[in-house]
Design a protein around this nucleic acid. Structure first.
Length: 202
DNA sequence: CATACGATTGACT
DNA sequence: GTCAATCGTATGA
């Protein structure tokens, strides 16, 4: 008998981002009728310069410094909303970027939200901006409580094997292997990640 | 004020 | 492969 599906508890999130990140792989991100299984995330720690928390509390990142287990939704490139899971106790600005999901329920709603009927299932949530759009997230969802609010992360006891690489799309701290993803999963974002060279080719 | 620039995406050569 | 879209925030004159 497998244990019952449950919402992840507050204490799950009150840990360093690198630890929570690995724990999120295989969990289910759910917003109303729409849900997807997490297959790619990146950890961002307050102490390193690629993190939005690195420079302290600012106008747009207060949620990140709030209590763990909340969702931070923020705009990048003036175009895309990205979703962060807040980690660590109040006052620490660390979190996890959800980068890709494998659609589970509400696939046609996702396609409608994406606005393109030709998008194949495995591309609906294959990127941080794409999944925010597929789920219909808005800036009003910034600060949503993942434990008691409308957006949840569920544990249905499905374990997926995952590996790590360096993170995508950043210009600093590129050496940290804080991207966690399920190898060969078709929903993982396809952007090429710069290879971390331990030694430059001569 | 002016300007630079993102934890990206989609269109195009 | 290259590049524009688009806008809130940060930084400097």
């Amino acid at each position: 008998m497998s244990p019952k599906t449950q919402i992840l508890k507050r204490q799950f999130y009150e840990r360093p981002a690198q630890l929570v990140a690995g724990g999120l792989i295989g969990k289910v991100f759910k917003f109303g009728p729409i849900s997807g299984r997490i297959v790619e995330v990146e950890a961002y720690d307050e102490s390193e310069p690629a993190s939005r928390g690195f420079s302290g509390i600012r106008k747009g990142n207060a949620t990140l410094f709030g209590p763990a287990g909340h969702l931070e939704v923020y705009l990048t490139y003036g175009i895309n909303l990205l979703a962060n899971v807040v980690c660590e106790p109040v006052g620490i600005g660390s979190g996890i970027l959800i980068r890709a999901l494998e659609p589970v329920t509400g696939v046609e709603l996702m396609r409608a939200n994406r606005g393109d009927p030709r998008v194949p299932d495995h591309r609906l949530c294959s990127g941080p901006g794409r999944l925010s759009r597929a789920f219909g997230l808005t800036r009003d969802d910034d600060g949503e409580d993942l434990v008691h609010g409308r957006v949840h992360i569920l544990d249905d006891h499905v374990a997926l094997p995952f590996t790590r690489s360096n993170r995508v799309g950043i210009s600093v701290a590129q050496d940290l292997d804080w991207r966690f993803y399920v190898p060969d999963n078709p929903s993982v974002s396809v952007r090429r990640v710069p290879v971390t060279r331990s030694r430059a080719t001569p």
